[in-house]
């Protein structure tokens, strides 16, 4: 029995020593990061609007220029950027977001429409209206300039909603300043630029 005991002990120590000397970490693998957001842009192009701002629809205007706003690493528009939009006009507002590798990812917001919705803040009361152009997400939408105002900072927030929250949110919440409570969750995008509605 003593022999058996010694063999077992020897085996135990050998196993321990071997495993101790044969394990090391794996080389780290760079991830294709799906959560990081890289360079982001907003595109504005004038459209013709038919109907009211909730149920109406748009028509493209031939030759309408596209204003592109490229945001920096902190979500700010270029220094000195100042956009003029005209009262009584409507503009198609389109989001282009890229991942760490520069690939467009805005479709991922639409794929999960149940937990995403954009809010647009900063405009004085009654100056702007907005119509979601997709499944109440805001990757595509229409910005309506209702009346003139002095320059303000427009904030585009793509909210990442907690489970069950979207069911209690409507299209009328497009500019809800209580978004932290009404659209409870986190923020996926926080973009800011100066807007001046002019006659």
């Amino acid at each position: 029995m003593n022999k058996l005991r010694n063999y077992l002990l020897l085996g135990m120590i050998t196993c321990g020593a071997l495993t101790f000397s044969s394990c090391s970490k794996e080389d780290p693998v760079p991830e294709k990061d799906q959560e990081e957001v890289g360079k982001t842009s907003l595109l504005l192009q004038e459209v013709a609007w038919d109907g009211d701002f909730r149920t109406g629809h748009s028509h493209a205007i031939d030759g309408a220029v596209i204003d592109t706003i490229d945001f920096d690493e902190q979500g700010n528009a270029p220094v000195g950027f100042h956009l003029h939009l005209h009262t009584g006009h409507s503009y198609k507002l389109t989001l282009i977001a890229r991942d760490y590798a520069g690939r467009e990812i805005q479709q991922t917001f639409l794929d999960r429409a149940d937990i995403h919705q954009a809010v647009i803040l900063g405009a004085p009361t009654g100056v702007l209206d907005y119509t979601y152009g997709d499944d109440q997400v805001g990757v595509t939408g229409y910005l309506h300039v209702v009346k003139g105002a002095s320059t303000f900072t427009l904030q585009y927030l793509m909210r990442h909603l907690n489970p069950g929250v979207k069911a209690g949110v409507t299209a009328d919440d497009w500019n809800n300043t209580n978004y932290q409570s009404k659209l409870a969750g986190a923020t996926d995008l926080d973009l800011k630029f100066e807007l001046h509605p002019v006659e």
Partner: peptide, 21 residues
């Protein structure tokens, strides 16, 4: 004591903790 910590690839996020021995 020997410790080996590995991040399993494929999470789609960059790990907060590195692989280490």
């Amino acid at each position: 004591m020997l410790q080996v910590n590995n991040n399993t690839p494929g999470t789609g996020t960059t790990p907060l903790i590195p692989n280490f021995d």
